[in-house]
Design a protein around this nucleic acid. Structure first.
Length: 902
RNA sequence: GGGCGGAUAGUUCAGCUGGUUAGAACGCUUGAUUUACAUUCAAGAGGUCACAGGUUCGACUCCUGUUCCGCCCACCA
């Protein structure tokens, strides 16, 4: 046996075992009709991703589930991959070329995309390699990317299919526009934040009357340049007579009507609203109802455009706001400005304030797609863990609006729509001259053809001037297909079809709450529509990783803890164990570096216990199976640890099955450290050479390593490989099976008593400050002969662990003089301490104990006197209470007897 | 405006369907150690379970309300 170092060194074994697993292909899953499938699809990290604690938590959970189920015998597939992350990736590459003073327009679409692909080739697998560092047992040979050739086919097929069914449509509508990214965003990508601003009260001169005005209130005065009406509530008596008249829009000096619309809240502001159809979703709706024109007054970059008066053209929207207010003030048209805090959308990628902007975009009809997705969750075909997310999900489903899927960027799936330039130009011209009547665009009239390939000819005019839509699709429009597109759908060979049938629906989706709407809900929609089946049966939502002050970890705040740093310093298993211990179901996780110490200490404990066992193990004497051997085990400590092991196995298995990861971690930790190490190994030292102890030490260690393996894969493999074992790797062993017959309640109780005795003696030692090295003698008086019979043979346990010299266990003997006393149910422990013990002090100590017990006794007695309690409480609770009462009484009596002896 | 989560030891948190004297980790105090492990071992101190009501024989646990923190959703300008 080579010397094993006394400290566990993660660096030495992590890479080694990871390569070993990969070489042996242990992560690979195949269709196996004899076994049940278990499949998880990874939430694909962005190709631009760098491993952060959120990933660490998310993927540790998945790996635990996967390793656990794999050992349970399922054909287990963890499908990995990355997401092309349209805006994020484009931003990264744009930043890179900006260093050479270039913009993407300088390069042109094709050249720019080449750069992005190059970037992806170079850095795109960073995150994958980092997941490997985490120990993730994904089936890497299946790794997919949302812009793979095959995957892209799925995306455009889906677009075409949905468009055919009118579930995708083109519309001229108010969308969230990011002036920095210069693209439309979906509602989910616009994040509301409270912003301190002002409410401006502006006067619009009434037409035909000198010095008469209507006053409107607005938070965004710059949009007034695009006003095409002023509106009041028809029921608002103050303004009834204004309806039908008009005002002169200041600065623009155009006449606009005063209209009545019931959407106006008379209580807000002045009760009069300026209507800006092109820059406000509410106003747009009003415009449709009243057939008002829409006037866009801003460019893509949120500077004022040529529709604005010359003075403001090319000014930024905020600059324009200042200038307009100044100009209105000069004309005496600002009544007042008051402080006002309101919620404004911001781009989720760059945090720029989003501009509501009228533009032509593609939309998915979520309302119709949502019906089936709502149903399956309502009926619990898909279960959320914890269940409260079900409500959140259903709530969101209830008021779905169109999902804007076109993005004005280059990196992504090009929209499979082709425009006849002639028809489209004519159509646009016609629409522009119209007032707004509806938002949807008739594709045929506009000369738009939806098709995978260039259709070459316009179906309307027959012209050949066809051009593909410049836009790409929202990234989530590809990720929502992840659970089935990763299997090759829709182009399925025989093998792919078999695999998809076998592994779909998948079992669990593990993700964070932020992504429920973006991704989870949409995957359910896509699954129900295209596969006619739920994509997964369980959704486990874990908390958000925050720093110790509760702030979300983010690079810009500089409060991140880098998982790779933690792996370096503490080891991967320590990271995994610690983070999983902190994850109470669905609760946010507050992290600080110090918290990883517990995992490191545990790993080291495992290491040293194993080291001790290994150095004492006579490998020729171990038995290959605990089950057969265990029936003949005689000694209490062995019967006890075997019993405890199976109870631990049972509890840990159930915890993992119910997604209670922190419980699983705690249960195994508790068992290994505080039962196996603190008690069993300590006791086993006295019989280390017996076959019984040899087998049990080896077997319990081996079996505990197995149930710990999903949480701490490396150290368990490393040790397992060193002890006698069967098979190639611990990850390929089977999950131990529960042996109810080996749960030995009698042994549990006996050990409990012994542990209590040892605790009491140690306590006396401590109270009287008796050095560890000094042996003491102990007399134990028990209440029944049977207790004497069961306890006496185990006296050596007490001698050993409480450092006791002579020990006497008897039903009857004379109380020794000048003893420290401890009283347990049916047991009195006397430690004669002549010369050490201070009688007065011991008396005080005992009196204190008596007082505590008396107060407990009083409570139990009161309860037992209560007739309602006796009548209504379950019998066993009453019996228990009676038992308690007897116990307290007995203990008090014994303590009082002892006091008399002083 | 709507919804959700949290408030338990000095700190960070467990405590699942109500039932013995409310647990852990870290920190603290005291002590130990040639004999697997100081990333250790033993003992100990430390809690009006946010507050106020209610239901119940019995409430940290269930209900109602209040306060404080945090989060999500929302087109009232």
């Amino acid at each position: 046996m080579t010397e094993i170092p006394s400290k566990y060194n993660p660096q030495e074994c992590e890479d080694k075992w990871y390569s070993f697993w990969e070489e042996h292909n242990f992560f690979h899953a195949e269709v196996d009709s004899r076994r049940k499938p278990y499949c998880i699809v990874i939430p694909p990290p962005n190709v631009t991703g760098i491993l952060h604690m959120g990933h660490a938590l998310n993927n540790t959970i998945q790996d635990i589930l996967i390793r656990f189920r794999r050992m349970q015998g399922y054909s287990t597939l963890w499908m990995p991959g990355t997401d092309h992350a349209g805006i994020a990736t484009q931003n990264v590459v744009e930043k890179e070329i900006a260093q050479e003073g270039l913009g993407r327009q300088d390069l042109g679409r094709e050249e720019f995309l080449e750069k992005v692909w190059l970037w992806k080739e170079k850095y795109g697998s960073t995150i994958i390699n980092q997941l490997k560092k985490l120990g993730c047992s994904c089936d890497w040979e299946r790794t997919r990317f949302t812009m793979d050739d095959g995957y892209s086919v799925a995306v455009s097929e889906v677009f075409i299919e949905l468009a055919k069914k009118n579930l995708i449509y083109k519309a001229n509508y108010i969308i969230n526009w990011c002036p920095r990214c210069q693209t439309a965003l979906s509602d989910e990508e616009s994040q509301h934040k409270d912003v301190k601003g002002f409410l401006y009260y502006l006067r619009y001169p009434l037409k035909g009357e000198e010095n008469k005005y209507v006053t409107v209130a607005t938070t965004r005065p710059e949009t007034m340049l695009g006003d095409t009406a002023v509106a009041v509530n028809p029921k608002d008596k103050r303004y009834n007579k204004l309806i039908g008249r008009s005002v002169i829009l200041p600065l623009v000096e155009e006449e606009i009507p005063i209209i009545a619309d019931s959407a106006i809240d008379p209580k807000f502001g002045t009760g009069i609203v300026k209507v800006t159809p092109a820059h406000d979703p509410n106003d747009f709706e009003i415009a449709i109802r009243h057939k008002l024109p829409a006037k866009i007054v801003m460019n893509d970059d949120a500077t004022m455009n040529k529709n604005a008066p010359l003075d403001y053209q090319d000014m930024d929207r905020f600059e324009a706001r200042e200038a307009i207010i100044e100009d209105l003030k000069e004309r005496g048209l600002v009544q007042k400005i008051v402080d006002y805090e309101h919620s404004v959308g911001h781009c989720y990628r760059c945090h720029t304030m989003v501009e509501p902007y009228l533009s032509e975009q593609w939309f998915v009809d979520m309302k119709r797609l949502g019906l089936a997705a709502e149903e399956v969750v309502k009926k619990n075909k898909i279960k959320f863990h914890p269940p409260r997310w079900k409500k959140v999900y259903l709530n969101w489903m209830r008021d779905l609006r169109g999902w804007c899927i076109s993005r004005q960027i280059w990196w992504g799936h090009r929209i499979p729509a082709w425009y006849c330039e002639d028809c489209k130009t004519a159509y646009d011209k016609m629409r522009k001259s119209e007032v707004i009547a509806s938002e949807r665009i008739n594709l045929a009239d506009a000369g738009i053809v939806i098709s995978q390939e260039n259709p070459k000819f316009c179906t309307k005019c027959g012209g050949s001037n066809m051009k593909q839509d410049e836009d790409v699709l929202d990234t989530w429009f590809s990720s929502w297909l992840w659970p089935f597109a990763t299997f090759g759908w829709p182009v399925l060979g025989k093998k792919e079809e078999e695999e998809l049938n076998y592994f779909y629906p998948t079992q669990v989706l593990v993700t964070a709450q932020e992504i429920i709407f973006f991704w989870v809900a949409r995957m359910i929609m896509a699954g129900m529509y295209f596969m006619k089946e739920i994509p997964f049966s369980d959704v486990y939502i874990h908390g958000t990783v925050r720093d110790i002050t509760g702030t979300k970890m983010s690079k810009s705040l500089g409060n991140i803890i880098d998982p790779l740093d933690i792996i370096d310093q503490y080891g991967c298993d320590a990271l995994r164990f610690s983070i999983i211990s902190l994850v109470a179901t669905g609760q946010d996780v507050f992290l600080s570096k110090e918290k990883f110490g517990s995992g490191r200490n545990f790993a080291n404990k495992i290491w040293n216990a194993s080291r001790y066992i290994l150095s004492n193990l006579d490998q020729g004497r171990v038995s290959p199976s605990l089950e057969s051997f265990a029936r003949e085990v005689k000694d209490l400590k062995e019967r006890w640890i075997i019993s405890r092991y199976y109870q631990t196995l049972d509890a840990a298995t159930r915890a993992l099955e119910n997604f209670r990861f922190n419980d699983a971690a705690r249960i195994i930790y508790e068992f290994f450290w505080h039962e196996f190490c603190d008690w069993y190994i300590e006791l086993a030292k006295s019989t280390i050479d017996t076959k019984e102890t040899q087998v049990v030490l080896h077997q319990i260690l081996e079996k505990t390593l197995r149930i710990l393996h999903p949480i701490m894969p490396y150290i368990t493999e490393d040790i397992w490989q060193r002890i006698p074992h069967q098979g190639k790797s611990i990850m390929a062993t089977i999950w131990p099976e529960m042996q109810k017959k080996l749960v030995d309640k009698k042994a549990d109780n006996q050990m409990k008593t012994i542990i209590a005795c040892i605790g009491a003696i140690r306590n006396i030692r401590s109270v009287w400050q008796i050095e560890q090295s000094k042996e003491i003698n102990v007399k134990i008086r028990v209440a029944q002969k049977s207790l004497e019979n069961s306890l006496a043979p185990q006296a050596s346990y007490i001698q050993r662990l409480a450092k006791v010299g002579t020990i006497e266990v008897k039903k009857a003997f004379k109380r020794p003089k000048l003893s420290a006393v401890a009283v347990l149910p049916d047991i009195e422990i006397f430690v004669p301490l002549e010369g050490i013990i201070d009688v007065k002090k011991e008396a005080t100590r005992l009196k204190q104990k008596i007082k505590e017990l008396e107060s407990l006794l009083k409570n139990t007695e009161a309860r037992l006197k209560n007739k309602q309690f006796l009548k209504k409480a379950p019998v066993e609770v009453v019996a228990q209470t009676k038992e308690k009462k007897k116990e307290y009484k007995d203990s008090i009596k014994k303590l009082k007897d002892s006091l008399k002896g002083f």
